[in-house]
Amino acid sequence: MIIHVNEMYLLINYLISVIISMGIAICLGLPLVPEKPRRFSWTKSAVFPTPIIAFGLLALCYSAEFYWIYNGLALAIITGVVSSFFMKYLFNYVFPEPSVGDINE
């Protein structure tokens, strides 16, 4: 068995982290979804990849068995907030978008 009761709390924390990151990302002016065709879109949006960064950072902390306070809930809120601000202000610096000529040559 993989899921225990304690891990159900962690799954709820992941959900909270995702919801907070998406909510703040929308408040910061990021679009909800990328423009069409979505599968080739490089636009950073609230749906993708903001939640990926949020639960990725949270998974990194939980994998290192660092839960801090309230069974990891405080960490979930912090990663949600940090990931949305990271998406808005730092993402393009860390993961620059390749120019069109480089992609389809």
Partner: peptide, 29 residues
Amino acid sequence: LLGVNGGILAAFLIYIGNRLCADPGYAGT
């Protein structure tokens, strides 16, 4: 290796790998 956390961490690392390969990362993640 790490339970459910490991699966989610794998998705995050794959997303970073995708971006390094100039791929938007939808399929991998």
